[in-house]
Design a protein around this nucleic acid. Sequence first.
DNA 1: GTTTTTGCACTGACCAGTCAGTTCAAATTC
DNA 2: GAATTTGAACTGACTGGTCAGTGCAAAAAC
Lengths: 218, 218
Amino acid sequence: MSARGTIVAMESSSAASGGSTRREATRQKLYEAAVTLIAEQGFSATTVDEIAERAGVAKGTVYYNFASKSVLFEELLRHGVGLLAASLREAAEQTARDGGSRVDALDAMIRAGLVFIDRYPSFTQLYVAELWRTNRAWQSTLMVVRQQAVAVVEGVLREGVEQGEFSAEIDVPLTAAALVGMVLVAALDWKSFQPERSLDDVHAALSRLLQGRVSGRG
Amino acid sequence: MSARGTIVAMESSSAASGGSTRREATRQKLYEAAVTLIAEQGFSATTVDEIAERAGVAKGTVYYNFASKSVLFEELLRHGVGLLAASLREAAEQTARDGGSRVDALDAMIRAGLVFIDRYPSFTQLYVAELWRTNRAWQSTLMVVRQQAVAVVEGVLREGVEQGEFSAEIDVPLTAAALVGMVLVAALDWKSFQPERSLDDVHAALSRLLQGRVSGRG
DNA sequence: GTTTTTGCACTGACCAGTCAGTTCAAATTC
DNA sequence: GAATTTGAACTGACTGGTCAGTGCAAAAAC
């Protein structure tokens, strides 16, 4: 219920060339309203009137700020995934700086993914629901943006293979997709069906899976 | 594009208590039409007129066979997931009969999952898109049915733990969810973004991940 | 002769997007 | 520093179109 946080904490470098703060604040409210409603109901089932009402704003204001319902949604997507990719990249780089191994980097990225989903569950929900749809206006936006996130994981895997830390036999793109999927689905399940668990708990379980410590004596 | 196969190859034990075959055939056509359209566009964006047209049937026929658009969709869901769960169970049992280990069983289930998704990609797409939505009419249907599938995986994991084949430290429900997610997402990615790969290829990659043969010298 | 399908006109609700008009804070003028 | 102007931001009633679901007489299938 309580959808904590905003997708759009990004500040938009306020001062420089910045539009009025008022306008920015309105857009924020609209993003927040839209993300939860669309996550719950889907894009088509969510009306602009609902979004406006939830944001405490008149319908006209939505169209003053966004060209259309789809544009509002697309900007929401772009913004959110940008945040996620940045967060993954940050985790990988931090590990590298600390002299960690590639497995450590993957582990750090899993955690970063979990933290993100914990903060923005609605966004994640909405993203997964739309990613594999075909024939949608924002299909290309979605693809580009997906690649952005998966590429970070692929990068770490590839480096690991080059360094001999990972088996040369692994299929980099496929493994990257599988890892992302694992985290995504496990996290959504966590939030939906056992929200009482702690992030550390979930992280530990996935970590174990990653390191193949499932079979064999713990 | 070419959405092969039907969700509903299930035969419905034809003879016994079976309604006329003609009616059943019409329902089949409607299921097929609905599943691809809804996978592409989502439930709300798909109109009953479209479904009827794609099925080559009059609109009135839709309402002669189903009480409403939502009911048609719900029956579609129930049917599809029933198929998946049965297929997973079958894979696990077959492995047991052959005297395979639990890891073998998990591996067989991964393959069964891939085969299912290969056959019914639209259904999978649609299922993933709807599963984590809240506030939907068919929410409970979906939950029940999800549990049905995940439970099969949990069962194998639990037996493995009891038998000492898996670490006692693993979190059974979470690991089960993660495994299902891994397969689901990897497969959807396969179908969407690199459809030229073979099922064996994808299976091998996931198998490796499962058995922790990612890190270390292959 | 019963079940199923067809074709098609119709209704009423709902909804994306528009637009003429309002608000108000900041800039400009005197 | 009070009076006036400006224009970006916002409002909400309205429009044109769409769509789920109905009703029903006639045809087709079995």
